[in-house]
């Protein structure tokens, strides 16, 4: 009896609370419709991975095939190749791309000429705004062995035309990763610069009195202060590890480097949408495999970091 009345009471107050805030829900209406249509309906579309899609039957009418699409992918000769390429590019990019912005920010922050440091910082994050298409265009022009910077400088110093590095498949990963460093180090350093600017100055003063050099202060004052930020960035990066910059890989691909540049996400696109093939179900299954691995990695890294350092994102 008492329980029931309490329940109706909370129900009533819930209704009253919703009514009191009705205008908030009005503001949320369009965003929610958007979220449902453009994010959650496609997630529902993932059932395709377990079906054999035909245009006539649509997503819901097509026949269930269980794990057939996944088995097709895992047993195809492409599977080990694209998985290996994805992991090589992703891990390489993480190993180089994670520490460099931190080092850059620490050094820039320690540099005594603040105005010069400011100019360097402003200039180095401009490349972040260059679109992928233009970026790949720049890479191809500049690394051209006859007319680019690479060709010109090689010719200038040795008097010979160098070999064409763009057509060497095994060099693809280096070009891919280091051009990414060129483009995003400045941008990725911003977050660490921000964290460094909030370091308590009295810590530095105290360290100075104890006779610490600037380098020691960098190691024992600056770095511990930005470590939590670094951990969070590492978690996010690890969670997105299978998201090798898809557009860039696709745009940099050519017949000569395809054995090294085909990653899971570009393969998803080719299986599903490139002319003449169009296996929607298989493509969805491969894409889903990618997302699930990503999600699992995110959860694992997050849990490890929570254990070790108490820094986590959820």
């Amino acid at each position: 009896m008492g329980k029931k009345s309490k329940k109706t009471q909370t129900k009533k107050s819930l209704r009253r609370r919703i009514a009191a805030g009705w205008q908030v829900y009005v503001l949320l209406l369009v965003p929610l419709i958007y979220l449902f249509v453009f994010s959650y309906i496609p997630m529902g579309g993932l059932v395709l991975a377990f079906k054999k899609y035909t245009i006539a039957d649509g997503i819901w009418g097509s026949a269930w095939v269980g794990l057939e699409n996944f088995i097709t992918f895992f047993s195809s000769y492409k599977f080990p190749i694209v998985l290996k390429n994805t992991l090589v590019l992703a891990i390489y990019a993480l190993l180089v791309g994670f520490p460099i912005p931190i080092l850059f920010a620490l050094l820039l922050n320690a540099f005594p000429r603040k105005r010069y440091a400011k100019v360097v910082q402003s200039v180095t994050y401009i490349p972040h705004f260059i679109s992928t298409v233009v970026m790949v265009g720049i890479i191809m022009q500049i690394l051209n062995s006859r007319t680019g910077i690479y060709g010109n400088l090689f010719m200038f110093f040795t008097g010979q035309t160098p070999e064409d590095i763009l057509s060497k498949g095994n060099l693809f990963k280096h070009i891919f990763v280091w051009s990414g460093i060129w483009q995003s180090t400045g941008y990725n350093a911003i977050i660490y610069m921000a964290a460094l600017s909030s370091v308590d100055q009295s810590l530095h003063e105290a360290a100075c009195i104890d006779g610490a050099t600037r380098f020691q202060r960098l190691l024992y004052v600056d770095w511990p202060c930005i470590r939590p930020t670094a951990v969070i960035m590492l978690i996010l990066a690890a969670g997105g590890i299978m998201n090798v910059s898809f557009e860039k890989a696709l745009l940099m691909q050519n017949d000569l480097n395809i054995a090294y540049s085909e990653v899971i996400s570009t393969y998803v696109y080719k299986v599903g949408l490139q002319k003449g093939i169009g296996d929607f179900s298989l493509s969805t299954a491969i894409g889903m495999f990618n997302s699930v691995i990503n999600f699992i990695l995110l959860v694992i890294v997050n849990a490890i970091s929570k254990r070790l350092t108490n820094d986590s994102i959820f």
């Binding site: 609370r17 829900y25 959650y40 496609p42 993932l46 997503i59 599903g272 997302s291």
Partner: peptide, 27 residues
């Protein structure tokens, strides 16, 4: 207000998981 935190979670979740190329294309 009731439900707001849940809706926030629904938005945040899309940062980490999505339907992928083909379901979006069909949509």
């Amino acid at each position: 207000l009731p439900g707001i935190n849940k809706i926030m979670f629904l938005f945040t979740f899309t940062m980490f998981f999505s339907g992928g190329i083909i379901p979006n294309y069909i949509l």
